[in-house]
Design a protein around this nucleic acid. Sequence first.
DNA 1: AACAGTAATGAGAATGATTATCATCTTATT
DNA 2: AATAAGATGATAATCATTCTCATTACTGTT
Lengths: 138, 138
Amino acid sequence: MCAEVTEFARALKDAGLRVTQQRMTVMSILMDAQDHPNADELLSRTRAVDDSISLATVYRTLSVLEEAGLIQKLALENEPARYEITPTAEHDHIVDVETGEVIEISNEEINRLRRAMVEELGYEIVSQHTLIRARKVK
Amino acid sequence: MCAEVTEFARALKDAGLRVTQQRMTVMSILMDAQDHPNADELLSRTRAVDDSISLATVYRTLSVLEEAGLIQKLALENEPARYEITPTAEHDHIVDVETGEVIEISNEEINRLRRAMVEELGYEIVSQHTLIRARKVK
DNA sequence: AACAGTAATGAGAATGATTATCATCTTATT
DNA sequence: AATAAGATGATAATCATTCTCATTACTGTT
């Protein structure tokens, strides 16, 4: 993890942001997360490492990291936003409507088609995301 | 509009819901809307017709109509949800990051690809939506 | 058309996620 | 180490949305 942490500190500096304990903690927790935690979940996980961290700082850190492009916010319909490290490959999500589980999917063909369609309308994509609510077929 | 209104009243009954002034008003406003209004905007537009309608009822009506499948909720990142009449053809949205304008797009090829991908994972789609944030190319 | 039963409404309180405030503490720079 | 600008913790404030509850309005039945 050491290399990644250094890398992350550099990314913060490049964005003109200070490298703080709290930001490093939140980021490392998010790096280790296999799921897509929300702010509350991040608070409790970070508190296992540093019990002084506040909810306000978690939110502030998340929004600062998002602006810097280091993480991505996942706005869901009826629950708090979830976060993930900005993935190397652009991808979308399936939310299992029964369990709430989030599954990552990606399809280059779809991305290409979307990009072409948006370009035809005279736009350039800033960000895009597909959210599919689905249920397991028995 | 008369035929549509009758049709809508039937849809409410079919869903086991009462046909009320407020529901009819909200629905007709939404039918006439060329944009994708949020709850507040719907409140002020409905009040031009019936100034007794309350914000709570707008929200209740919206959620009831959504459950009945008559309208669709559009969850955006950092602003209140927007609503639209359930479109005959499944479609997605581009949000212009500069103006906030919402543009509808659709592409059957993409829909097909998505459905196939989700099926392969053993899921069936309940609903799906793509939100693209984009800026106009100058 | 009046009735009864029950769902829907209006007004405002309550909730829950997120953001703002401000005094204090840290980081980066000299 | 000293400084100045930024970041933090604690908590208050905000904003969208939901809930509560007394009152009102649909709907099916006489």
